[in-house]
Design a protein around this nucleic acid. Structure first.
Lengths: 361, 361
DNA sequence: CAGAGTCATGTATGCGCTTACAGAATGCGC
DNA sequence: GCGCATTCTGTAAGCGCATACATGACTCTG
């Protein structure tokens, strides 16, 4: 790995100036064909690759978009089973990559490190033309500051009214409507009335919106529901989901008729916990999730859930960024709400076939 | 998005020199605490984010690793069904991202564009400290030239002996052993003897290795097998898999007893085609794939296949790159072969439970 | 209180490229 | 063969940061 060749080396070897070398790459038509060939030949001989850093520095743009996502890795997931490890952040990545490619951008991705958040921001924000952030990955204050200088779109986190982030674009999904429809289904179509919502201890606007949807459906049907989630899991993982299910079963009055979990991972954990206790899903207890991760179709019974359009969210994010980058700077912040799909599978008593209903937005 | 603030702005605002500002970020301990605070405060006020480009230029390293992968998007896949769209490149991405994060790197990803290959290389190679390439994503000649100046690891493509690429690290999976074991299983455990291999028209070392494994198993069992794949699909997609299955059924002598497909997508296509013809899998015709994509477990009958350890491949790739970046330059090229897992599911006559056997390496 | 030793900070240069701008070639009509 | 419009190419000035080196402010010792 000797020192990499630069424009100077190529220029010298082909007997032109560095400006001409640069032109060959940036604007080929502005160089006479014969000269161009000489330059390209020299570049080939030397193994020349233009430095993205220098190029970016000089031209003030990188041609790269970024994505910061939380480290959702669920340590409970069987490491051997790659499929199950695919979470929905992967789908956002794929969606963004596709859209970015269409627009001629590459994609830089980084999960939040526990190490100082500066590292995340430095790694991503400093190297891209614009980026998307999954909610609560980066401290609000930092985002606020960064988003003043370059386009940022917030994913899956509802706009937090009144705070300083209300000037950045953001994309969310119909958490409320989806959860309400799913809950309505449990109540009206399956006749369940003792429902328990499994939320999370961490403050999450998504989870809160889902809980409100749950409450709305309960109220609409005249079902008694406490104003607080029945359980708040410490983390939204399988282990915590299992623990939550156990806790609910051990409470006075026996297990509820349905566990409405705020995400799929917890729901899968709950499924396992109930099975261990000898309870049958959905006959003894129905279980539902939220997200639509692939694992939900692999478990038995298959998991009834609300599917988020993650691929599309990634694509929309890129489209927004690109629009910002090429558009008028002062444009008003955009807020998208994407519809979700209620997927009724076996764990609520439907199935084995999957039935779906689009909801929201 | 007015002009982004720079070290100069921060320096001025906090009454220090730009060198001190730089030190605050690069080497905080070398600056007096009081000064540091002043600088950080100014940075915060201004919304300062260090330019990755300038940093990279000056320090000659980016802290970013890259991945180039082919555009595997299968247009046949139902766009609504995000799960099914997850291919194994996604798993490599995830594996690389995880490992990269552990080592303090971010990950830049780009699928090959049809547009001039220069774009791919310029986008990725020029912006990273090292990168992985999925086989045949980048023209050999270009790779050859680039890999002289920075670490490159080739994924899933067997070393091509005798060509100029034999000096770069590479990671492959046990294509031969996996396909041989799977074929042996069909012949010996299910007693099938009329097998047809569905290969691909494009030249692919992976597919070739798989075919050789197939042949080896046939020979070992005294089964008559032609020396050429029974069909070479134009592309390795569902549509082409279906077409291949139809072609085989229409040949004289009726359908074979087993379709051994070179990848999962074609196998899924074949499944559909056979169903349309009123043939039952596995009773009339057994079908097998290769890769282990999530979709394989979602189709009915579930797909017997050879699972590649993609997550691990991504992780190993990053480990290799990091080692190269920190190690002695002249070290010999490394070649890893990762074991695969034969997953026996319903489409070969096993199942409904999945049975697995590790093979190779 | 001078001189040596530390630590904190400033000065100056270059990383490899893009891009005005200026200058050299070339072509055209007359 | 001259003048002028067109190409084409070279010159030079940064882009924002890291860092070697120089400088200045102190502390400590004798």
């Amino acid at each position: 790995m000797s020192t990499a060749p630069t424009v100077y080396d190529v220029a010298e070897r082909s007997g032109v100036s560095i400006a001409t070398v640069s032109r060959v790459y940036r604007n080929p038509d502005s160089v006479r064909a014969q000269t161009r060939e000489r330059v390209l030949a020299a570049a080939r001989d030397l193994g020349y690759v233009p430095s993205g850093n220098a190029r970016g520095l000089a031209s003030r743009s990188t041609g790269v978009l970024g994505l910061c996502f939380p480290d959702y890795a669920d340590p409970d997931t069987d490491a051997e089973d790659d499929d199950a490890a695919m979470l929905y952040s992967d789908q956002i990545i794929r969606g963004m990559e596709r859209a970015a490619r269409r627009h001629g951008y590459a994609l830089l991705i980084a999960a939040s490190l526990k190490g100082g958040p500066e590292s995340l921001v430095a790694k991503v924000a400093g190297r891209v033309d614009g980026f998307a952030v999954m909610a609560r990955t980066v401290p609000t204050e930092e985002l606020e500051s960064i988003s003043r200088r370059r386009p940022v779109v917030m994913l899956a986190g509802p706009r937090e009214d009144g705070d300083h982030l209300d000037h950045l674009d953001h994309i969310e999904v119909a958490n409320f409507d989806g959860q309400r429809e799913l809950t309505r289904h449990l109540i009206e179509d399956h006749g369940l009335r003792r429902l328990a919502f499994v939320g999370s201890a961490e403050e999450s606007p998504d989870v809160e919106a889902r809980f409100q949807g749950f409450l709305a459906a309960c109220r609409a049907a005249g079902v008694d529901a406490r104003e607080e989630p029945a359980v708040r899991a410490a983390m939204m993982t399988q282990a915590e989901g299992a623990r939550a299910a156990d806790a609910l079963c051990d409470r006075g009055g026996g297990p509820p008729r349905a566990l409405v979990c705020a995400n799929d991972q917890m729901a899968v954990g709950a499924l396992h916990a109930l099975e261990r206790r000898g309870l049958t899903v959905p006959d003894d207890v129905a279980v539902t999730g939220f997200d639509g991760i692939p694992l939900g179709r692999l478990v038995r019974p298959t998991l009834t859930t609300v599917r988020q359009p993650m691929l599309r969210m990634g694509e929309e994010a890129v489209d927004l960024l690109v629009r910002r980058l090429s558009g008028t700077p002062g444009a008003d912040p955009v807020s998208l709400m994407l519809p979700v799909t209620v997927a009724r599978r076996a764990s609520c008593g439907c199935g084995p076939e999957e039935l779906t209903t689009a909801v929201g937005a």
